[in-house]
Amino acid sequence: MKILITAASTATAYKLEKELAGSGSLILADSVDLPSVLIKDKRFIKIPPANSTSFSHQLLTLCLDEGIERVFPLRRSEIEALSESRQLFDEYGIVVMVPISPNLSSYWGNSKTGEILIKEDDDEFAGRGVYLIEEGSLDNLQILTAD
């Protein structure tokens, strides 16, 4: 399985990469240029900025062209944009790891520490996505973001 992780210029992307090791072929992406020293021995793809009006469609095209099956967006603007177009990606068999749009506001937070929880499915507990949990408590879930 090919997996795309965004925000490759941040430590959060590498933290998630470590968490997903062995899950498939990992590809890092960002809308900013990265020095070659950061991407040595890694696959890197440049993506459009999330504030682009066609961000979701350009990312979908990229995923289809590259055979990417799972997307882990890590910038808040990417998460918001892809949450709104998650169904479109689902129709093409590409799983975007974000909760559906109406549920986003309840998961924003400021913490940068905690255990990573990857939820594969939507349920009454939380939508699919990548979350931070504090000390194993599921009471205070927040979406993992790089910003």
Rank of each mutant, 00 (worst) to 15 (best):
S54D: 12
S111H: 08
K18M: 09
T113M: 07
L88D: 05
S105A: 11
R75E: 08
I118N: 02
L117V: 15
S105F: 05
E78F: 08
F55Q: 09
L138E: 04
K42M: 03
D90S: 13
Q142Y: 05
I5Y: 00
N110G: 12
K2F: 06
I47P: 00
K119D: 03
S56M: 00
E69G: 08
E66N: 09
L16R: 01
E134D: 14
S25P: 01
P73L: 06
G127Y: 03
E91Q: 08
V96Y: 04
N51M: 10
L59W: 00
S23K: 11
P99H: 00
E84K: 13
L20T: 03
T61F: 14
R75D: 04
D121H: 15
K46Y: 03
E19Y: 13
A126R: 03
F125Q: 11
M1V: 03
K40Y: 10
N103E: 13
N103M: 13
S111T: 10
E17W: 11
I68C: 01
D90I: 02
R43E: 12
A11S: 09
F89L: 07
Y92D: 02
D41L: 05
L64Q: 06
S31K: 07
V32K: 15
E135P: 01
G136A: 09
G93I: 02
Q87R: 09
E135G: 07
S105N: 13
P73F: 06
L62I: 14
T10I: 01
V130P: 00
S83F: 09
Y14C: 02
G114D: 11
R75I: 04
I45T: 09
T6M: 04
P35S: 09
S111C: 06
E84M: 12
L74Q: 00
Q58M: 11
T61K: 15
E84Q: 14
R76K: 15
H57W: 08
C63S: 06
P48D: 03
L64Y: 01
D122L: 04
F89E: 03
N51V: 08
D147Y: 13
N51H: 12
R128K: 12
E84A: 14
T10F: 01
A146C: 12
E80S: 15
W108I: 05
Y92E: 03
E17S: 14
T10S: 15
K119C: 10
P99E: 00
W108D: 06
W108C: 07
Q87C: 04
I68P: 00
R75Q: 12
S83W: 01
E134V: 07
Q58N: 13
E66P: 05
D121I: 08
N103D: 14
E19F: 14
L138W: 05
E78R: 14
G93W: 01
S111A: 10
G67V: 01
D123H: 12
V37S: 08
K18Y: 07
S25K: 14
A126E: 07
T113E: 14
G127D: 04
P73S: 10
V71E: 01
E66H: 10
